[in-house]
Amino acid sequence: MDVTDEEFGGMMVTLEQGDSLKSAPRSHRRLVTPEIEAWWADPVGAIRGVADRAVSPSMRLWFRRMAEVGSWQLQLHKAAHGATRAGYYLSCPGIRGAEVGPPPANLVVNHLPSALSNYYNLIGYVDWMGFGAAGGLDGPVGHMPLTAFKFDYRGAAVDLARTFVFGWSPSGGMIVYTADGLGGWLNQGSHEIRLLGSVTDTIDWVYGELLADRCPDYFSLR
Results as ranks from 00 to 15, higher is better:
Asp2Cys: 04
Val3Met: 12
Phe8Asp: 15
Gly9Cys: 08
Gly10Cys: 06
Met11Asp: 02
Met12Leu: 11
Val13Thr: 10
Val13Pro: 00
Val13Cys: 06
Glu16Asp: 07
Gln17Gly: 11
Asp19Gly: 08
Asp19Thr: 10
Leu21Asp: 03
Lys22Met: 13
Ser23Ile: 09
Ala24Val: 07
Pro25His: 05
Arg26Met: 13
Arg26His: 13
Arg26Val: 14
Arg26Thr: 14
Arg30Asn: 12
Leu31Met: 15
Thr33Arg: 10
Ile36Val: 15
Glu37Pro: 08
Ala38Asn: 12
Trp39Cys: 13
Trp40Pro: 07
Asp42Glu: 09
Gly45Asn: 09
Arg48Ser: 14
Gly49Phe: 00
Ala51Asp: 05
Asp52Tyr: 00
Ser58Pro: 04
Arg60Gln: 14
Ala67Gln: 00
Glu68His: 00
Glu68Arg: 02
Val69Ala: 14
Gln75Asn: 11
Leu76Tyr: 06
His77Arg: 05
His81Tyr: 09
Gly82Cys: 10
Gly82Met: 10
Gly87His: 03
Gly87Glu: 03
Gly87Phe: 03
Tyr88Phe: 15
Tyr89His: 12
Ile95Met: 09
Ile95His: 02
Gly97Glu: 04
Ala98Val: 02
Glu99Ala: 09
Val100Ile: 11
Gly101Thr: 12
Pro102Trp: 03
Asn106Thr: 07
Asn106Ala: 15
Val108His: 14
Asn110Gly: 14
Leu112Pro: 12
Pro113Ala: 04
Ala115Ile: 03
Ala115Cys: 06
Ala115Trp: 01
Ala115Tyr: 00
Asn118Asp: 14
Leu122Ala: 13
Tyr125Arg: 03
Tyr125Trp: 06
Gly130His: 10
Phe131Ile: 02
Phe131Asn: 05
Gly132Cys: 08
Ala133Tyr: 13
Ala134Pro: 00
Ala134His: 07
Gly135Met: 08
Leu137Lys: 05
Leu137Ala: 07
Leu137Arg: 04
Asp138Val: 01
Asp138Met: 12
Pro140Tyr: 07
Pro140Ala: 14
Gly142Glu: 06
Pro145Thr: 10
Pro145Phe: 02
Thr147Phe: 03
Ala148Glu: 13
Phe149Glu: 08
Phe151His: 12
Tyr153Pro: 03
Tyr153Met: 10
Arg154Pro: 01
Arg154Val: 13
Ala156Gln: 11
Ala156Glu: 13
Asp159Thr: 07
Asp159Trp: 05
Phe164Gln: 07
Phe164Ser: 06
Phe164Leu: 05
Val165Gly: 02
Gly167Arg: 01
Ser169Ile: 03
Gly172Ile: 08
Gly173Lys: 00
Ile175Tyr: 06
Val176Trp: 01
Tyr177Arg: 02
Ala179Ser: 15
Asp180Phe: 01
Asp180Gly: 02
Asp180Met: 03
Asp180Glu: 13
Leu186Asp: 04
Leu186Phe: 11
Ser190Ala: 11
His191Glu: 05
Glu192Gln: 11
Glu192Trp: 01
Arg194Thr: 11
Leu196Trp: 00
Gly197Trp: 10
Gly197Ile: 11
Ser198Ile: 08
Ile203Leu: 11
Asp204Gln: 00
Glu209Phe: 02
Leu210Ser: 10
Leu211Trp: 01
Ala212Trp: 04
Asp213His: 13
Asp213Pro: 05
Asp213Gln: 08
Arg214Gly: 08
Cys215Thr: 15
Cys215Trp: 11
Pro216Arg: 04
Ser220Pro: 00
Ser220Ala: 13
